[in-house]
Each structure stands twice: as C-alpha cells, then as structure tokens.
Amino acid sequence: MNTLQNFSKGIIKENPVLVLVLGTCPTLATSTSVTNAVGMGVAATAVLLCSNIVISALRKIIPDKVRIPCYIVLIAGFVTMVQMLVKAFAPALDQSLGIYLPLIVVNCIILGRAEMFANKNKVFDSAVDALGMGAGFTLALILMAAIREVFGNGSFMGMPIPVLSDNKISIMTMAPGGFFVFGCLIALVNKFSANKPKKKEFGCAGCPSAAACGKASCAEQGVTASD
C-alpha cells in the first residue's frame, strides 16, 4: 500500500466515524457547532498522531500481554498535554468542549488504531495512518456539525445565515437531533457505498474490548462462553 492510499483510506474507504462507526460519543456530543467540531477534531488528531508514532516506535519493546494498559497510559499522557495546551491557548474552546476533552482517552478510534495499525507497522506508516484517520474524523465531525448548526442555529461558524436564522429548528442542536443526523448520514453512506450488501451493525472491530464484546454477544444468543 503506498503512502497516498494509506492516507486517503482514513478519509473515505475506512472513515472512522461513518464507515467503521468508532468514536460515536464525541461525534454526537461535540457536533453542535462547526467551531467545536474543528477543535475536537484537531485535538483528537494530535493525540492520535502522537500515540501512533510512539506506540509504533515501541512496538517491539512493549510486552504483548500488558499492551492495552501501556497504550492507555501513553494516550492519557498525550491527552493531558493537549488538555493543558488547549486550556492555555484556547480557553473558550476548553469551556465548550468541557468534559469531552479528557474523554479523548477512551475514544475508540485512538486505541483502535494503536491495536489495528500502529503495533504492526513502521513509524512513518503509522504517522500517515494517524493523519488520514484524524482527517476522516475531523471531516465527518465538520459535516455533521455543519448540518446541525445550519438548521439548528441558523448560522455557520457563528455567522448568521439570512433566512434560516429566523427559522431555527433548535431540536437539531439538542440530543435527539444528534442521533437523527448521525443515523441519516450513515444511511446515506450505506446508500452510496459500492460494496453495500453487508448490513451495518455497530462497529467494534477496532475496539480493544472487542474480544470481550464477542463474549457478550455470545451470551446474548444464549451460547455460554467457553471460560
């Protein structure tokens, strides 16, 4: 796979939000305005880039058995750094992202990329993968935020739009609007994706707890897990 493909797969073919369905919590929560979406996207991309580079560089040193705790500590460290930077240089953004900034630690996209890509690939490839995935995440967030802000608040990045600002559908910026827009966007992606037939379920593929989740779905079907 060449570098360009490696980069672009994160944006379209394996878009973390709309195709892999990872990191739904921050997507729904911070897409109320485009400014928030950009801030969240950039913060998550920065953490993803740093963690992918370091995890990929350390992939031969970290023992396999304790890799998940190691990844979590590394990621938490980078999140703390980003948190402090945002607090210092963009206090307004810190206010509006609030709790979702420290919660980047448990964002499935970051752990998922560490698990699926960075621990098997070279440093440069991992960095490119992180940038692609980060861009995909940011673009999906901006798309969703644009829809919600334009209809819900009648503005785009804070600039009012003539007719819409007098006819706000404020439900769009509230919780139900988030679920609704996200559902419609995924349906749209389903409609236009070429190899569609596979019915999309909630994507846990990249989640580190996927193995345990498999057990949970076994329990769901009444099959007893082996251990």
Binding site: P176, G178, F179, G183, C184, A187, N190, K199, E201, F202
Partner: peptide, 13 residues
C-alpha cells in the same frame, strides 16, 4: 439503506 445501525439511531433520537 436504513437497515441495521441507522434505524437504531433514529429510534434513539
């Protein structure tokens, strides 16, 4: 195209 996750999300809304 709404089968699976999308309809679940709309229901969640």
């Amino acid at each position: 195209s709404f089968k699976g996750l999308p309809v679940t999300l709309v229901a969640a809304a």
